[in-house]
Every structure is written in structure tokens, then in C-alpha cells.
């Protein structure tokens, strides 16, 4: 319950991001503000501060003011308000996590059921595809795909996805994790197929479509739903890792992973830029995992699931 509360709180805070940026911090978190100034205790100071000591090398963005009206967490190297970006970044992180989990679980459920129900050649082909995706180390697959897709975008017939689109990380992450969900669904469907009620339905001459939708689906759905919160957490972590390797969400848009990446160049001088989004990721993922445990207990008390890796 606490977990759900925390999640709702995070959701609310990312929803108010535009309001916060526009009406409280008076800042645009997507435009560079290299020559900007802000007022701290009555003094106007530059957002990017040149070093005045020693040889005078280096320019450091302003640190946390701990004042919600401006630069609560300081600025990044483009002089943008990190806290405003954190709120906007949360939107993308949660959106990508959720949508890719929906796609992933949906595709996995369909493929897993097809493989488990029909068996034979269909099962063999699908299972080998799962094997390949599984054996291709996750980040390698994601990185390779991203490198190609980020330069050229995705062109599949009439569907065109631009290189900077959010849909690229969504599709990549969803695809990579399909086997994680599809394999257990396949196993479950195989065992269901041996059960009497399905055998009876086959015997009565019902169409495959009807059996799959009316008999198999209702019985596999709970397992897929159990996976869902875990996959959201999982996908969100993966998105942040991809953005960290600068192949996820593209600037000036932000996600928690991209903000961590922006913050790495400032790790030793302005650690909060990288720390804050990481903490947000951890809190969200913990809540999702606890929620996932709860969902599992509710649906399927005996299920043995592997936690998010």
C-alpha cells in the first residue's frame, strides 16, 4: 500500500512538471541557458560560473539552492534547471517503462501462447527466435540496434519513426525482453493444452482462435499481469542504462537516465545532478517491485518468479 502511495505521488509530481517549470521556477528546461543569471540572497549570479581561482580554468554550473523557486538542485552544463528536468524526465522514464512493458507483455503473451498451443514447427521457430534474442546479451542487442536506428530512424513500410523519437527506445527495450515473458507463457500454455477442459474444447471442434481467446487466454493472463509491474521496473532500469550509454532518450528531451548521463561530467563538482535521478529510479523501482510482489500474491500465490535482473 505504501508502495502504491509512493507511485501515485511520483506520478502526480511528474504530471505537474509543466506547471512547476512555468509557474514556480519560471524556466524552460529544454532550452540552453548559458548566459542566464539568477538571484541568490539578493545577489545576481551567473548560472554558469567561471572559475576565478588558480589558473581560472573551467566553468561550473550553479549548485543546489535548495529553494523551489529557482535551481532547487542546481543547473546542468547547459544552464538548465535540473529539478524541472527531473520532473519532465520522470514522465519519459515512466512512459517508456510502462509502454514498453505493455508491448513486451502483449507480444510475449501472443507468441508464447501460439508456440505453446500449436507446438511443432511454429513452436520450434519461435523458440529458436527466443533463444537467439536471449543469448544475444541484452545490452549488446540494445546498443547494436540503437546505433543503427539512431542514425537512420526506423522505416518499416508506411511506418516511419524518426531517430529522436521516444518510440525507438520503447521498441528496442520491448523486443529485447520478449523471451523473458514469452518462455513462461509458452510453458504454461503447453501444460494447459494437456488439461481436460482444453482437450474437451478441441474435441468439440471449436476453432483454434476460439480456444485461444476463450480458454487459454483467461488462464495465462494472470501470469502475464503478475509480470507486468516487474517488467515496468525492469524496462525503466534498462531505459536508464541505455540513456546512460547515450543511446536512449535524445536531448533536449530528458529521462532519468539521460540526466544521470548529463550529471556524470559534473559528478565530482555537482554530484546532485547525477544523484537525484538515480534516487528517483531506485524509489520507483522499489515501489514497482513491492507492488509486483503484492500483485503476485493476489493472483497466483504459488508462482515462482525471478526478480528483476
Amino acid at each position: 500500500m505504501i508502495a502504491l502511495g509512493v507511485l501515485i505521488l511520483i506520478l502526480l509530481s511528474v504530471i505537474v512538471a509543466p506547471f512547476y517549470a512555468h509557474d514556480i521556477a519560471h524556466t524552460n528546461p529544454f532550452t540552453s541557458n548559458l548566459n542566464g543569471t539568477t538571484v541568490i540572497s539578493g545577489r545576481t549570479v551567473p548560472v554558469l560560473q567561471p572559475n576565478t581561482q588558480g589558473l581560472g580554468l573551467g566553468v561550473t554550473p550553479i549548485g543546489p539552492t535548495w529553494d523551489f523557486r529557482h535551481y532547487f538542485l542546481g543547473a546542468d552544463n547547459q544552464g538548465r534547471d535540473v529539478f524541472a528536468r527531473l520532473l519532465y524526465g520522470g514522465r519519459n522514464s515512466l512512459f517508456i517503462g510502462t509502454v514498453s512493458a505493455i508491448i513486451c507483455c502483449g507480444v510475449a503473451a501472443v507468441l508464447g501462447m501460439l508456440a505453446g498451443y500449436f507446438g511443432g514447427v511454429i513452436d520450434w521457430v519461435l523458440s529458436r527466435i527466443f533463444d537467439i534474442v536471449w543469448a544475444f546479451p541484452v545490452y549488446l542487442l540494445a546498443i547494436s540496434l540503437s546505433v543503427v536506428l539512431l542514425t537512420s530512424g526506423l522505416n518499416l513500410g508506411p511506418v516511419h519513426v524518426g531517430p529522436g523519437s521516444l518510440w525507438l527506445p520503447i521498441v528496442i527495450i520491448a523486443a529485447v525482453y520478449v523471451p523473458y515473458v514469452a518462455r513462461p507463457v509458452r510453458g504454461l500454455t503447453m501444460s494447459l493444452r494437456e488439461r481436460e477442459f482444453i482437450q474437451a474444447a478441441i474435441g468439440s471442434g471449436a476453432s483454434d482462435w476460439r480456444i485461444l481467446t476463450k480458454e487459454v487466454l483467461p488462464n495465462t493472463l494472470p501470469s502475464v499481469i503478475v509480470f507486468f509491474p516487474l517488467m515496468v521496473a525492469f524496462n525503466m532500469l534498462t531505459e536508464s542504462a541505455l540513456s546512460f550509454l547515450s543511446i536512449g532518450v535524445q536531448p533536449p528531451a530528458a529521462s532519468w537516465g539521460t540526466i544521470i548521463n548529463d550529471g556524470l561530467g559534473l559528478l565530482y563538482t555537482r554530484p546532485w545532478v547525477a544523484l537525484a535521478p538515480g534516487i528517483m529510479i531506485v524509489i520507483t523501482a522499489v515501489s514497482l517491485n513491492i507492488l509486483g510482489d503484492g500483485v503476485r500474491d493476489a493472483f497466483d500465490p504459488k508462482a515462482k518468479l525471478r526478480g528483476a535482473v
Binding site: N51, Q53, L57, G58, L266, Y268
Partner: peptide, 9 residues
Amino acid sequence: SDRLAELSN
């Protein structure tokens, strides 16, 4: 860049 100030000081 975030080590520049440290070094130059």
C-alpha cells in the same frame, strides 16, 4: 571539465 577547477586551483 569537472576536474578543471580542481586542477587549476
